[in-house]
């Protein structure tokens, strides 16, 4: 699956780097000074590179843990996000990463312990207040778990710090490492969904809805708390039917008591990212959706957006209480 690995000289001997290199004995190994020499170079084509992404092993020096935008959160006052990886195994056509990054390569920051130290500082800063940490903004939290062993390293930290909460945002069914251990209360495995037909059209290489659902059921049965994320909501003529089917399927099979939170938000992208995506995929139907530009963002016009959000909210609230419902406040 991975045939080229770039590795920063500084972390070439890091035990995590060595273990990953051993896992890919046939990969071409290329030394580099800083991952940005490869990842941030202009003139790269994300779409072409996505056909054969390389893995870049790097060290994250700054900005290991960052505050989330104000409108994001699932119940705490203090919210932070962190990315042990950049880019994703999947190829979802609506994903902002394609607009944000020059490269489709996967960057893995192997200095997990520095992330954990930074999280400890954040916790200290907030005394004993609840603090939420979100993983999965710039990558899928679990998709490369067999390679990264991300949860194996990070979960013990959260286990020791019950005032904190970790959200693992994912579409992946790579849940083996979670199922092998005892669940912890302050970790939410948050699965993203779009209706089956929309997922088939837009979420390339991602596990089908049915498999994601099975992964959730297995996690719930093992005692893990899960989250449901309907963000982005995607408009199509028969969205009422499609989303009704999705909600009915999910809520008929899940244990609502083990659903920590449900969030939703309409499809929207910063204008610059959207324009880049449009150029990369001119033949993509999503970009001929009824979209408008407002406040430097591209998204659905207010009537479509509000209709969709209201419709989905009403169904969701039939299944989960209001205090578990977190609509993302739209920026447009």
């Amino acid at each position: 699956m991975i045939s080229t690995i770039y590795i920063e000289e500084e972390i070439a001997e890091h035990p995590r780097s060595r273990a990953i290199l051993e896992r890919f004995p046939d990969a071409e190994i290329i030394a580099c000074e800083r991952y940005g020499e490869i990842f941030n170079r202009k003139s790269q084509n994300f779409r072409l590179q996505k056909k054969k992404p390389a893995l870049i092993l790097a060290k994250k020096h700054k900005g290991l843990v960052l505050s989330t935008p104000k409108q994001y959160g699932i119940g705490a006052e203090h919210n932070y996000y962190f990315s042990h990886m950049l880019n994703c195994l999947y190829d979802c056509r609506y994903c902002f990463l394609q607009g944000m990054f020059q490269s489709a390569h996967y960057v893995l920051f192997v200095n997990y312990e520095d992330f954990i130290d930074e999280m400890q500082s954040v916790l200290n800063q907030h005394n004993n207040d609840p603090v939420h940490f979100f993983s999965g903004y710039d990558c899928d939290s679990l998709a490369l778990e067999p390679v990264t062993h991300f949860t194996t390293t990070f979960l013990p930290f959260f286990e020791k710090n019950p005032q904190s909460l970790l959200e693992l945002r994912t579409k992946s069914t790579q849940t083996r490492s979670l199922l092998k251990r005892e669940p912890i209360k302050n970790c939410v495995i948050a699965f993203s969904f779009t209706p089956d037909k929309i997922a088939t059209a837009l979420e390339h290489k991602a596990p089908p809805v049915e498999k994601r659902l099975q992964a959730i059921i297995d996690l719930q049965n093992a005692g893990w708390t899960i989250g449901l994320r309907f963000d982005p909501l995607i408009y199509t003529r028969d969205y009422i039917e499609e989303y009704s089917t999705l909600f009915n399927t999910l809520f008929s099979k899940l244990n609502p008591d083990l659903v920590h939170s449900v969030s939703l938000g309409g499809f929207r992208l910063p204008k610059d990212y959207y324009r880049k995506l449009e150029k990369l995929y001119p033949d993509e139907k999503l970009f001929s959706s009824p979209l408008i530009e407002e406040n430097n963002s591209i998204g659905y016009p207010a009537d479509i957006r509000n209709d969709m959000l209201t419709f989905c909210k009403n169904i969701i609230l039939q299944h989960v209480p209001l205090e578990k419902f977190y609509p993302c406040h739209e920026t447009i």
């Binding site: 059209a201 837009l202 995607i234 408009y235 199509t236 003529r237 139907k285 999503l286 959706s289 009824p290």
Partner: peptide
């Protein structure tokens, strides 16, 4: 605008 949009 006046034509139904179907993504799938």
């Amino acid at each position: 605008k006046n034509t139904d949009f179907v993504i799938h």
